[in-house]
Write a protein that binds this DNA or RNA. Structure first.
Length: 273
DNA sequence: ATTGAGACCTGTCGGC
DNA sequence: TGCCGACAGGTCTCAA
């Protein structure tokens, strides 16, 4: 469940399920995900209380009473489940081979991290420390600090296609393959257009930068408000809608799929310029 | 400095 | 039925 709205939905669920509880037991069922778990991972989690669950881009940040922070990335297929199992249920269910981490809390809640593809990541950040993965990360798209001026400055002089640019987490945090296509459709901008064309050479925003910043905010805001349920129900405007009519009123175009930087892009060639 | 291709890993789906 | 390739919401690294 990987883009900003999905990660935010996981954050809310985890915060509700775990906040204030102590970590009583941690079970690692394999030594690594995308990378090995850090040394003493289990020891550094055990016995500490979960104070809050935050998010930065697509990363979850679990603040512990020890002062350390558990950093989690869901990759492509990572998911958390939190439940208070009945003993009988626990004993009878066959273990899922992709349940890689099981955390038992003092409240009786059991948090399970499941990740078939293992592109996920878990690491620990020392008290007062900064994690390498977050160092160069761009602004949060839903913060006020992110606007057309910031976006235009980041685009000035860049020859990359807008769609590819939006996937760069240093430009803006949390946008992935689905919402990049959705935001560009909302903005009426072609995914193939060079990033530099939405800014003046000096880096000031042109009209297109205003539309794109607004498009990013609009599609993410809407998905966050819907608790990211769009993916299951396929309620996207262009994503995975190749061959269907463009949803823009009066457009009449047909959604196309192209490949950019090895990933699928969906757009309407008629209304996205 | 950018940009593209390939790698990482498993599951699913459509075509033959 | 099974086999095969294409594809999937994300990064990384390496080479041109």
């Amino acid at each position: 469940m990987p883009e900003l709205p999905e990660v935010e939905a996981v954050r809310r669920m985890l915060e509700r399920a775990t906040r204030g509880a102590r970590i009583d037991r941690v079970e690692l069922r394999r030594p690594d995900l995308r990378r090995p778990f850090p040394p003493d991972f289990v020891t550094r989690l055990s016995g500490h209380t979960i104070q809050s669950v935050g998010r930065r881009g697509k990363y979850l940040l679990v603040a512990l009473s020890s002062g350390e922070t558990l950093l989690v990335h869901l990759g492509m297929s990572g998911a958390f489940h939190a439940a208070k199992p009945r003993a009988a249920h626990r004993a009878s269910s066959t273990p899922d081979p992709h349940d890689h981490v099981v955390i038992v809390l003092s409240s009786g809640v059991v948090v399970t991290f499941n990740d078939p593809r293992r592109f996920g990541l878990m690491d620990l950040i020392r008290a007062g420390g900064q994690h390498e993965a977050l160092r160069a990360m761009g602004p949060e798209p839903l913060d006020e600090a992110f606007d057309a001026a910031v976006l235009a400055r980041a685009c000035a002089g860049k020859r990359v296609a807008l769609k590819v640019l939006l996937l760069d987490q240093r430009i803006v945090a949390g946008v992935g393959n689905i919402y990049a296509s959705e935001a560009l459709h909302h903005a009426g901008l072609s995914p193939r257009r060079r990033a530099s064309t939405i800014a003046t050479p000096a880096g000031a925003p042109r009209e297109a930068a205003l539309k794109l910043a607004a498009g990013i905010k609009a599609v993410l805001q809407k998905a966050v408000a819907a608790n990211a349920r769009a993916y299951e129900s396929g309620r996207f405007r262009v994503y995975e809608r190749e061959g269907e009519p463009c949803p823009r009123r009066g457009c009449g175009g047909t959604i196309r799929r192209i490949t950019q930087a090895g990933r699928s892009t969906y757009y309407c060639p008629v209304c996205q310029k």
